[in-house]
């Protein structure tokens, strides 16, 4: 218990978390501090490219094995099944409509790449590493949850038709294309490729992450300020319970696969995180009737800060305990 508290305390005073806290505080205090849309997008492109490239280079160094394939399949299954767990939990804890509950559930089956990145920095500060292909697992886990949510809705409506072209848009979402593409470039060019651009994608990484999290804090704080009234106590309980449930599912898969402590922690983090980039955009197209204020505020205003501040140290402590690492 002391270990978890020490980790949580160290995590809370890291530049990354304090930047997020600054953003939330500024938004709640109604400061005029903003990050322009184009700058926020540029920061996210940098982070996706860097994390994908570094993951690909790690795979190039360690090679491809059966565990890699198994982890990708596990990620796919977790992403497809977690929305059903989330949907059932929402039905128990909240009085959200079927459409809103399905839209929220899709977010919790998919992943947050920034939570994943923050997880890797927590791992690094604990002196641990993870399998490089966890980045590819993150990419695989982005989309299946959307299909599950649409199935939940179509089952309720008795309507099995899916809009033509929707899947193309979901699978070719910019964040997935960039993550997979940079992962492939990293895998092809290997350590030499990474060394040649390390001064750009390794050294400034944490600083850029701080700025991005400042922006995330501003967006989350604004969402909480304007939309918190839409969330009842049940929804907030869901927002902190579902990550714990998801992380345990991720831990089970990691133990079955025999992942390292770092790999187990990252699979837990992926399973615990909720999307706020790819899935909200997909939901606006596929389920426009769902209220975006509910799923964005839950994902970004409740679950993201929970994971960032308390969740990550807990997942690391549990992964250490379960894997003996």
């Amino acid at each position: 218990m002391d270990g978890i508290l020490a980790l949580a305390a160290a995590n809370l005073i890291s530049p990354v978390i304090l930047s997020f806290a600054l953003g939330v505080a500024a938004a709640l205090a109604r400061s005029d501090l903003t990050v322009p849309e184009a700058a926020a997008k540029a920061l996210s492109i940098y982070l996706l490219f860097a994390i994908g490239f570094k993951g690909g280079a790690a795979v190039a160094a360690n090679g491809i094995d059966a565990r890699l394939v198994g982890t990708l399949i596990a990620g796919l299954i977790l992403s497809a099944l977690l929305p059903f767990v989330a949907f059932a939990l929402l039905k128990v804890l909240t009085n959200l409509s079927r459409t809103d509950a399905a839209a929220v559930a899709a977010h919790y089956g998919s992943i947050s790449i920034v939570t994943f990145v923050a997880g890797t920095t927590v791992l690094e500060s604990a002196g641990l590493t993870a399998e490089g292909y966890m980045v590819a697992t993150a990419a695989v886990m982005e989309a299946p949850a959307i299909l599950s949510a649409l199935w939940l809705i179509s089952r309720g409506n008795g309507d099995d038709e899916m809009e033509p072209g929707l899947w193309r848009e979901i699978l070719l979402n910019g964040s997935i294309v960039l993550l997979v593409g940079s992962f492939i470039i990293g895998a092809v060019t290997g350590q030499d490729g990474l060394d040649s651009i390390a001064s750009f994608i390794v050294a400034p990484f944490t600083g850029v992450l701080c700025l991005f999290l400042l922006d995330m804090g501003l967006v989350a704080g604004r969402g909480l300020r304007t939309s918190a009234r839409l969330l009842g106590a049940g929804a907030i309980v869901f927002g902190v319970t579902m990550p714990l449930v998801g992380s345990l599912a991720g831990l089970g898969a990691a133990l079955l696969l025999g992942l390292s402590t770092g790999g187990a922690m990252l699979l837990m983090t992926l399973s615990a995180s909720a999307s706020y980039i790819a899935v909200p955009a997909a939901m606006r197209v596929a389920l426009p009737e769902a209220n975006p204020s509910i799923y964005l505020t839950l994902s970004l205003g409740v679950t993201f800060p929970f994971n960032l501040t308390i969740g990550l140290p807990i997942y690391l402590a549990i992964a250490r305990f379960a894997t003996g690492g």
Partner: peptide, 16 residues
């Protein structure tokens, strides 16, 4: 009717 929104800081197109 659906609340307030702003482009500032948005990474996704969902809120735009």
């Amino acid at each position: 009717r659906s609340g307030r929104w702003s482009r500032d800081g948005q990474v996704s197109t969902a809120s735009g």
